[in-house]
């Protein structure tokens, strides 16, 4: 398996599991550690972190948006304001968490490669 794909999947699975019990920012040490351990290129680590953590939010948020939270998501998307578009809110949610995860993974890759 390509190093990027492996790191991405690993981050996605472990981030999803740990966030069930721990606060969301647990993705920071997680991405940092995994990226430092696997040692990929900086760019690959960043994208693996962003997409892995992002997906760990996009999937459950999209699912909840369709199962019970859609009405509230529409209201929150009006409040923020995102024009009441709950799909956009799903996208934005994952992107924010993903960005933090991507930066942490980038740091991990640079640590390894220093």
């Amino acid at each position: 398996m390509k190093p990027f794909l492996f790191l991405f999947l690993l981050i996605f699975v472990l981030a999803s599991l740990t966030q069930l019990l721990l606060p969301w920012w647990v993705v920071l040490p997680l991405c940092l550690g995994l990226a430092a351990w696997r040692g990929t290129s900086a760019g690959a680590a960043f994208w693996a972190g962003l997409l892995g953590v992002g997906l760990s939010w996009w999937l459950p948020a999209a699912w909840l948006n369709l199962h019970g939270a859609g009405l509230l998501a529409g209201r929150v998307a009006t409040l923020l304001p995102l024009g009441g578009n709950s799909g956009l809110l799903v996208l934005l949610s994952g992107l924010l968490a993903g960005l933090a995860g991507g930066l942490a993974a980038l740091s991990g890759a640079w640590l390894k490669g220093r």
Partner: peptide, 26 residues
């Protein structure tokens, strides 16, 4: 993202599908 900034809510905690408002669905 984790801290309330003035009147802006703690965005990441609010938007997290694990802890945030998504959990208030019915």
């Amino acid at each position: 993202l984790n801290t309330k900034q003035g009147d802006v809510p703690p965005v990441a905690r609010l938007l997290s599908p694990y802890q945030g408002f998504w959990q208030n669905g019915e």
